[in-house]
Computed example of a mutant assay.
Amino acid sequence: MENMKVLLYLEGEKYLSKSGIGRAIKHQERALKLAGIDYTTDPEDDYDLVHINTYGLKSWQLMKKAQKAGKKVIMHGHSTEEDFRNSFIGSNQAAPLFKEYLCRFYQQADALITPTDYSKQLIQTYGVDTPIFVVSNGIDLSRYVPDKTKEETFRHYFSLSQKDPVVICAGLYFKRKGIEDFVKVAEKMPHVRFIWFGETNRWIIPADVNKIVSKNHPANVTFAGYIKGAVFEGAMSGADAFFFPSLEETEGIVVLEALASRQNVVLRDIPVYHGWIDDEAAELATTVDGFVAAIQRILDGRSFKKEAGYLVAQSKSIEKVSEQLADVYQKVMEL
């Protein structure tokens, strides 16, 4: 391992820095430091193995160039046709083409890494027979230790008193993220403040989603935009619940962040969580009324899942991920 040098590659970093993929590569950097593996993010540097996180033309050219030079290529399976749908304008029409395009990438690589068994199985159903390793995106537990000062910063930022019930979510402005149900649940709970962290360029999201964000939502909903640091970290532990009604994920880094914050978590019961998040660790529901009931249970002090949830986050700690990544790199070098 001492002699191995890895190139971590993220095309279009400027545009992806606020997304899950942008966060994932930061986790990879941290994991490699912990594992003591030499790495670079500059494709002009020398390296033995490239770990590609994106699917653009430059990524394709890099893969071909690396393989020509006899270097190993790992593609990160962050994306599937399923999680491409219900996102940007035209994404549903383009989804079959996107799948075909992804498969070309995935099939050409020496190996794939996906964050969950669910995403691995999906990619295999596409007919991709490249070796696939499951490694979580991981979570830096030390960053999400509940902190009273950060929690006060969060409440002050949104003018919330200590007694105001507040439910948060974090995600892009996509239908896939469950933004419609988020607003419907808030409508049924006017006594609770609902705050959505995250944003997407308004030009690329469908008109009906744009309308929800700009004016078509109840007064108790705030679309806060992209906020990081003390306000967001304070919200993660200081809110009453983290409600994530997403319809499709390959893992959900924000879910790990909420679990690491010892937060009450309400999720849509979808296949990606099967096998690692059960109803011991989070409130799971599938309908608006189910979400309302779950949130109310939490507000009434009748839900006791935080500790089990934290154990899930612990099992995906960045320290564990660093060992798994090192192991995968070693195996791929030997392929």
Rank of each mutant, 00 (worst) to 15 (best):
S261M: 08
R23L: 12
Y15N: 07
D164A: 09
F158P: 02
R23Q: 11
T130I: 05
K5C: 06
R155G: 06
V128R: 10
K320C: 10
K14Q: 09
Q324V: 14
T153C: 12
F304P: 01
H27C: 04
A109T: 04
A94H: 08
L62E: 06
F98G: 12
Y144K: 09
V209L: 13
Q107C: 11
M1Q: 13
T153H: 12
N137T: 13
G70T: 05
K33L: 15
Y310P: 10
A94E: 11
W60V: 07
H217P: 00
L335R: 03
K316D: 15
I37D: 05
H78W: 09
G171V: 05
I318R: 12
S261A: 12
V213Q: 06
V272D: 05
H78K: 05
S237A: 02
D38T: 11
L102V: 10
S246R: 00
G198S: 08
V192L: 02
D110S: 07
Y101W: 14
R23M: 11
L7M: 13
I212L: 13
L62F: 00
A170D: 05
K14E: 10
Q67C: 04
K33H: 10
I318K: 08
V231I: 13
E81G: 14
L172W: 08
A31R: 12
Q67V: 02
R262T: 11
I139E: 12
D140F: 13
Y47Q: 08
K306Q: 13
M189C: 00
A282L: 09
I179R: 00
V192R: 02
L10R: 11
L57N: 12
P165W: 03
K175G: 08
L62W: 06
S159Y: 03
E334C: 00
P271Y: 07
Y126F: 09
I270A: 03
D181Y: 02
P245Y: 09
R268K: 11
K215G: 10
I89S: 02
F243W: 08
E152K: 15
S142T: 15
G77N: 07
V134W: 07
E319C: 10
A109P: 04
R104Y: 07
G36Q: 12
G225D: 09
S303L: 09
L112V: 10
H156D: 13
L311E: 14
A94C: 02
D181I: 10
E180S: 11
I21V: 14
W276T: 05
Q28I: 08
A313S: 09
P165M: 02
M236T: 01
N3H: 14
T287F: 02
D164N: 03
G290W: 02
M189F: 03
A207T: 07
E319R: 04
Y144V: 14
Q330D: 06
Y226I: 03
L311F: 11
V6Q: 04
P115M: 10
F154S: 00
V288N: 09
L8M: 07
D279S: 09
I74Y: 14
